[in-house]
Amino acid sequence: MSNYHNPVMLQECIEALDIKPDGTYVDVTFGGGGHSREIMKHLGKGGRLIAFDQDADAQRNAIEDDRFVFVDQNFRYLKNFCRLHGAIPVDGILADLGVSSHQFDEADRGFSIRFDAELDMRMNQASELTAKQVVNTYAEADLHRIFGIYGEIQNAKSLARTIATARLNGPLSTIADLKNAIAGLIPRGKENKYLAQVFQALRIEVNQELEALKEFLTQCAEVLGTEGRLVVMSYHSLEDRLVKNFIAKGKFSGEVEKDFYGNDQKPLTAVSRGAITATEDELLENNRARSAKLRIAVKR
Rank of each mutant, 00 (worst) to 15 (best):
Q103S: 12
L238C: 10
H42K: 14
V28A: 13
V243Y: 06
K293P: 00
G262Y: 00
R295K: 13
N80A: 14
L129P: 09
S2R: 15
Y261E: 15
S2I: 13
D281Y: 00
Y25D: 10
T174Y: 04
G228T: 03
H102D: 12
V206Q: 08
G170N: 03
L94K: 07
F260G: 04
T218H: 05
A196H: 09
E15N: 11
N169T: 14
R229N: 00
L195M: 14
L10N: 06
A248E: 15
H236V: 10
K190G: 05
M121R: 08
R48I: 11
D142G: 07
V198A: 02
S101I: 00
V90R: 03
F111D: 02
G23A: 07
D91P: 09
I182W: 07
R145Y: 02
S127R: 13
I153S: 05
L84I: 06
E255T: 14
L284S: 12
E285D: 12
C82I: 08
K41Q: 15
E140T: 04
N3T: 05
R241L: 06
G228W: 01
K299S: 02
I153H: 04
T165A: 15
G31C: 05
I50H: 00
D105P: 06
R167E: 09
M123K: 05
N245V: 06
D120T: 02
R203L: 10
T162N: 00
D91A: 08
L284D: 08
T218W: 09
E280Y: 10
N74A: 13
D259H: 09
I113P: 05
G33L: 06
N6E: 13
L172Q: 09
V8H: 04
H5L: 07
G44H: 10
G86C: 12
V90C: 13
H236K: 01
Y194E: 03
H236Q: 01
H85V: 11
G250Q: 01
A183Q: 15
A221M: 01
A62S: 15
L178E: 04
F81W: 15
G92A: 11
D91Q: 11
D72R: 15
N180C: 13
E152L: 01
K258M: 12
R229W: 06
G32F: 10
N136G: 02
D66Q: 14
E128Q: 12
T162P: 06
S291E: 11
A297I: 02
S173C: 15
P187M: 04
G31D: 12
P267F: 00
F68S: 04
F104P: 10
Q219F: 03
N6C: 11
L94M: 09
T137Y: 09
L17M: 08
V198Q: 10
A183T: 09
G228N: 05
L294K: 04
Q73N: 11
L10V: 04
K179G: 04
E64H: 12
F30Y: 10
D66W: 03
E280G: 12
L43S: 09
H236I: 07
S2H: 13
T137I: 00
L210V: 05
S272Q: 10
Q265C: 15
T279G: 01
A176G: 14
M40N: 01
G262T: 07
D72M: 11
G228V: 09
V198K: 03
G262K: 12
T277V: 15
E211S: 14
I175W: 08
M40A: 06
P21R: 13
D108S: 14
M40T: 04
A275D: 03
V298F: 06
E15Q: 09
A95D: 00
L178K: 08
K20P: 03
D57Q: 13
L294P: 03
